[in-house]
Design a protein around this nucleic acid. Structure first.
Lengths: 159, 159
DNA sequence: TTATTAAATTATAATCATTCTAAATAAAGA
DNA sequence: TCTTTATTTAGAATGATTATAATTTAATAA
């Protein structure tokens, strides 16, 4: 398990290697992403968290940083159907995007870190001549726990 | 192969069965969707097509109709990462959403109509206690044809 | 260390997709 | 046909995201 500090260092190095500058605002934003790795935050969410420690930062800077990190393939910009983009850290050592389970009852998004699609990607190559570089797989449904009343998330649907 | 008229009739019936009214605006919108089944149009795209035949229609009506059709599970609202929602007809007889191949070169979106995920959905159920009702699977990559210069779509990247 | 230069940030305005509002219209059933 | 209620229209409002211009800062070299 790699530490937040090490990951941060690695992200900064990648940023610098591509000719971008390392700034305190970018570092603060990356730190928030690393410390809320599984939260699928919107830009506004990230902004509010960063502001706690760096109150002078502007919303546009957070947007620009998230866009940059997306370009560098360090985070993935996702859209789960509510009106906002959500940002999801790409795990070190996983070349492909992880999968998601989205609960229709509580809205919670959970991750599946394994890559289940290797075979299907070969099939896409063979049957359609399509060369896969990445993928997105979301399952929509319900967690057993939610269906039985003990929702794993604090929300109006939890019993 | 079921005809556009038959599909339209079926869609109208489902609409009426759920207590919604059948209007000329809704029919015109559904007709456009049926006649551009594989185009992944945005609301604005649909609006412009509908306007050709029904110039008085308002943009908000098209939005509302698309939302209604989404609620009825007759179309799927998708987001491919550009700023707009795209609407994709659900094929009659397919309970689950089809898969997509998205080309990084030309941006074209092609469909895979088979359902490749039955086994994985069982696995999600067993390993995570998550009961899948629907899914979304996108492959990002390149068509061999695009990579070799004869892009299948008229765009600036086509040779 | 300081000077230089290009990139980044700030604050704010602008944009653009989408949704809401109030008045007018039309569909479905009695 | 009449009545009721949903739907549509046109335009305003909203809200997420992006662009702008002036200012500041990071990286590099003298």
């Amino acid at each position: 398990m790699i530490s937040v500090e090490e990951q941060l260092k690695s992200m900064k190095q990648q940023m610098i290697a591509k000719g971008y500058k390392s700034t305190v605002q970018r570092e603060a934003t990356m730190r928030v992403l690393l410390e809320h790795e599984r939260d699928h935050m919107s830009a506004e969410d990230v902004y509010m968290r960063v502001k706690e420690r760096f109150p002078e930062i502007g919303l546009a800077t957070v947007y620009r940083t998230l866009e940059l990190l997306t370009d560098l393939h360090l985070v993935e910009k996702m859209n789960f159907g509510d009106g906002v983009a959500r940002f999801d850290l790409r795990t070190e050592g996983h070349m492909h995007m992880h999968h998601h389970m989205i609960c229709s009852i509580c809205g919670e998004v959970e991750e599946i870190q394994d890559d289940w699609l290797t075979e299907l990607e070969q099939r896409v190559q063979q049957e359609y001549g399509f060369n896969v570089s990445d993928h997105r797989l979301d399952f929509i449904g319900t967690f057993s726990s939610c269906k039985h009343g003990d929702c794993r998330r604090h929300c109006e649907n939890a019993s």
